[in-house]
Amino acid sequence: MKTDFNLEPKPISVPPPAPAQTLADLPPGSQGIVVSVDQAGSISRRLQDLGLLPNTPVKVLRRAPLGDPVVYELRGYRLCLRRGDAARVRVRPDEGDSTNSEQ
């Protein structure tokens, strides 16, 4: 949703055509790396205060029995977020996750 305000034409080669993905799209067991947090405002601010900053690896642990919220692991702790809030966090998938395979 957020558009880039940079008016200069972008070099075509740099951005890899990664599909837009948010934390809410990642299935349990997978891991992503934060790219940005959408929109200004108190929700995004709080998410950033909690450590969801660019380049932070986040692991999806499990869903609540009713399907929402979801537990994530980041920066050495476990945080539960609801789907709507997690959808503000853009991530890129992190496949190089061989050191810490789930369970």
């Binding site: 108190s42 929700i43 909690l50 919220p69 476990r78 539960c80 977020l81 609801r82």
Partner: peptide, 11 residues
């Protein structure tokens, strides 16, 4: 809502 996300830490 006061515009804060639901956040909960699992100790």
């Amino acid at each position: 809502s006061d515009g804060l996300p639901f956040t909960l830490e699992l100790p």
